[in-house]
């Protein structure tokens, strides 16, 4: 397992999580999935670096999904 070495969210991690939940407030599950997809794409554009992005995809995929 590769580890995301930096914690870039602390000390504002609770503000972030709260804002993320608020972004989903009032949406149906389908709408939430669409929002998540848009967010991933927007964040990918912010990161930009393809090597980083593919590493992140592997990291996320590296969990057994039931």
């Amino acid at each position: 397992m590769t580890t995301a070495s930096h914690d870039n969210l602390s000390p504002h991690q609770d503000d972030f999580y709260d804002a993320l939940m608020a972004a989903h407030t009032g949406l149906s599950e389908t709408q939430s999935h669409a929002l998540n997809a848009r967010l991933v794409l927007l964040m990918a554009n912010e990161i930009g670096d393809l090597a980083k992005l593919t590493a992140l995809m592997r990291m996320a995929r590296d969990y057994d999904d039931v």
Binding site: T3, A4, H6, D7, Q13, Y17, Y63
Partner: peptide, 15 residues
């Protein structure tokens, strides 16, 4: 919770 087993940033999200 799953990420928190491996990634420090996710541990700090646990509240």
């Amino acid at each position: 919770l799953r990420l928190a087993h491996d990634h420090p940033f996710a541990r700090r999200l646990l509240n």
